[in-house]
Design a protein around this nucleic acid. Sequence first.
DNA 1: CTGTCATTTCCATAATTCATGAATCATGGA
DNA 2: TCCATGATTCATGAATTATGGAAATGACAG
Lengths: 121, 121
Amino acid sequence: MEKNDALAAFAALSQPTRLDVIRHLIAAGEDGLLAGEIAERLSVRANTLSANLSILLQAGLVSKRREGRSIRYCAELDGLRALIGFLLQDCCGGRPELCQPLIESVGRASAPQNQNVMEGS
Amino acid sequence: MEKNDALAAFAALSQPTRLDVIRHLIAAGEDGLLAGEIAERLSVRANTLSANLSILLQAGLVSKRREGRSIRYCAELDGLRALIGFLLQDCCGGRPELCQPLIESVGRASAPQNQNVMEGS
DNA sequence: CTGTCATTTCCATAATTCATGAATCATGGA
DNA sequence: TCCATGATTCATGAATTATGGAAATGACAG
């Protein structure tokens, strides 16, 4: 990931509505959400949301596809992962031991209660 | 990490000079850099840099301590790690397998010799 | 074709961010 | 104390960003 891509991603994530949007989209899983659904859940006007979605799109953090009259947005996990990778490179570059504890703790934290990595879905 | 902390960190990292600052500080290691050294390396005026450093400080991404007439800044790796954790939580939450490949690739990428983090800045 | 729904685009306004010069603060030396 | 140095604070203007209303686009039904 280039520096400019990272800057765009950081800027996209630095606004409350947009951060909420991607969190909702991630939580929604692969099916994502329709623009209208997002607007209703977050209580933002359609045009405001549209502008924010376009910024997230530009930053490569979401994707969209038309579905009839609606437009479905999905979190672009590759984009998020690239951003995390950018941070990890800077943070851990040359000194992996610095972030190993973090990675392990996330591994634990993200395997909560009702889910078992071992059982296939 | 709270949502507001993450927003502050993203905003802090979304500006070219500030992103350069933390990258230089990380590369500088535990000794960090004096404010004047940073200003000279990045060719930014002292007062502009000071304002940007204060934003990074507020976001918990750097720390400072006085050293005679100068002030030494250091990257706050805990803050960076917290931010990465926030992203990983959102990204991988409930589905660790999504980010495992990323984590492993970073582990590999950060292993080789004394690679230079600064290239491309 | 006409009407409606979902979303986007256009435009104006309000708010925020940013870099700058001037002034100020803090430290250390003469 | 006085002065020089390193850094910060303050006030300003330029630029960017966010938001809302109105209009336009695209898709579908009748």
